[in-house]
Design a protein around this nucleic acid. Sequence first.
DNA 1: GCGCTTATCTGATGTAGATCATGGAACATC
DNA 2: GATGTTCCATGATCTACATCAGATAAGCGC
Lengths: 247, 247
Amino acid sequence: MGKRRKSPVEIVTTDVHMCSLDVRLRILRRLPFFHDLSESDLERVNRRFHEHGFEPGQFLYLAGDPGERMFVVAEGRVRLLRPSSGGRQVMLDLLIPGEFFGALGSDPQPYPDSAQAQTNVCALVISLEDFRAVLQEHPAVALRVLDATAARLRDAHDSIHLLGAASAERRIAHVLLKLGRKLGRADETGLLIQTPLGRDELAEMTGVTPETASRVISQFQKEGWIDTGRQWVALKDSFALENLLAN
Amino acid sequence: MGKRRKSPVEIVTTDVHMCSLDVRLRILRRLPFFHDLSESDLERVNRRFHEHGFEPGQFLYLAGDPGERMFVVAEGRVRLLRPSSGGRQVMLDLLIPGEFFGALGSDPQPYPDSAQAQTNVCALVISLEDFRAVLQEHPAVALRVLDATAARLRDAHDSIHLLGAASAERRIAHVLLKLGRKLGRADETGLLIQTPLGRDELAEMTGVTPETASRVISQFQKEGWIDTGRQWVALKDSFALENLLAN
DNA sequence: GCGCTTATCTGATGTAGATCATGGAACATC
DNA sequence: GATGTTCCATGATCTACATCAGATAAGCGC
C-alpha cells in the first residue's frame, strides 16, 4: 500500500487580492445562476456584488447576526455550522465555489448558523435587498436559485434520514461518498477527497464523536476500501461503501 | 388533571367532492404564493391545476416514482416519509394546507421520498412543466416559492442539528414545540396539537423507537408539562419544554 | 356494560457508541 | 534530525437508548 509522506490534498485558492473586478465577472459568468444573462445584464449584476477574502478559520458571519447579506463562494471551501449549547457543533454543509449561502428569504431574519472559511476563501457578497432586486428583474435567475435551493433541501432530507436511522458506519460511508462526488479527484490511489478532512470534522458532519469516526475510518482502511492519513481520505473502493448503504 | 374520554383532536376536512373548481380558486387565493396575482391571472393559474382527494393512509406518490408533479395541500395533513431499508422509516415533514411538495426543480428526477395522506386530504396538483411556466410568467410567485423553500431548508437544518447532537428528550421536546407552533390550538387544557399523533409517529419524527417516545412522553406528563392520551398531545407548559432545549 | 382491537406503558436485558485515558505517528520548526 | 505540537489510534469503561416481552388501558361495536 503506497504510503504517502504528506497530505496529498491540494486546494487551488486564488490569492485574496486576485478576487477583484474582472476576475469576479469571470466567476459570476461561470455560476449556473447567471448562465441565462446577457453580457450587459451580467455586468450590471456584477456591480451589485462586492467581494471579500477570508483566512482559514475566519468566520464570514455568526449564528444570530442579522441576516442581511447573501454570499457566493468564489474560491475555497466554506463550512456551514450550527453551534450547539454543549460546545459540540454540527456541520450542516460544506460549500464549494459556485454555491451560495446566507440570507435568502424576503424578510431578514438572524442567520440560523455560522459560516466559517475552511481554506482561504474568496466570497462574493450582495445585500439581501440587491439580491431580491436581481431576482425580480431576472426571473430566469430566480428559477435557477430555486433549483439550487430545492437540491439543497433534498440533500438536507438525505442527512435527516441518515441521522435518524443509520449506524455510525453508514453515516460515515455516506458522507465519504458524498464528499467524494462533490470534491473527489481521480488519483493513482483512488478518488482523493480534495479538502482537509480531519476526524473531528468528519465527526461534526456525521453526528458521532471523533473517536468513533477514527475507529470507523480505521476499519474501512483495514477492509481496503479507503486510504487515509492525517487530514485526508481517498476512496479506493466506492462500490464497497455504497454496498454498505444498500444493505 | 382533567381526563379526556376520547381524542380531542378535530381535523376539519372538506369532503373530497367539495374540492372542486371555485372552492379550489378560493384555496389558491389563500395561498401566500399567489397573493400578488390579479384575479384574472389567478384564474389562469387555477386552470393549470387539477385536484385530487386521498384517504388516510393513501400514498400520493412513492419514493422512486418519476417526479413530474408538484402538489399543494388544500385540506388535511400529508406526511413526507423517507423509507429506510430496515423497515423503519423517517418522517421528514408534516405538511398542512398551503404547503407544497413533490417535484420542484427544472430537471425531473425521481421523488426522493413518499407522500402519504395522514387524514383525508385534498391536494392540488400541477405538472412540473406547467408549474415552471407559471413561475416564468409570474416572478413574484417564484420569489415566494423561493422564500418558502428557503424556510423549509432552515427547518431541515434545525432537524439535522437536533438529530446530530441531542438526546431523545430534547428531540421530542423540540418536535412537540414545533408541532405546537404549527398545529396548535388553544384549549382549556393547553395548546392542543391538532393532528393525530401516535407514539410511532413521534418516533418516526425524532429518530427514536416508539418505546423511547412513550417513556419520554410519560415523563413529560409526570412533570406536568404536557397532557396526553391515545393519539394526542397537548402542551400545558411550553416554557418548560423550551427551557429543556436551552440548557 | 362486555368483549375485542389496537395503542400505550413499563420492565428486563443487550449493545452501539460516548467518554475517559494514553500511547504513538505525522508534520513543522529550527 | 532533534524537538515540540497537533492529530490520530486504540483500549477500558460507562450509559442512553434499542430491543424483547408482557401487562394495561383506551376506544369501539354490540
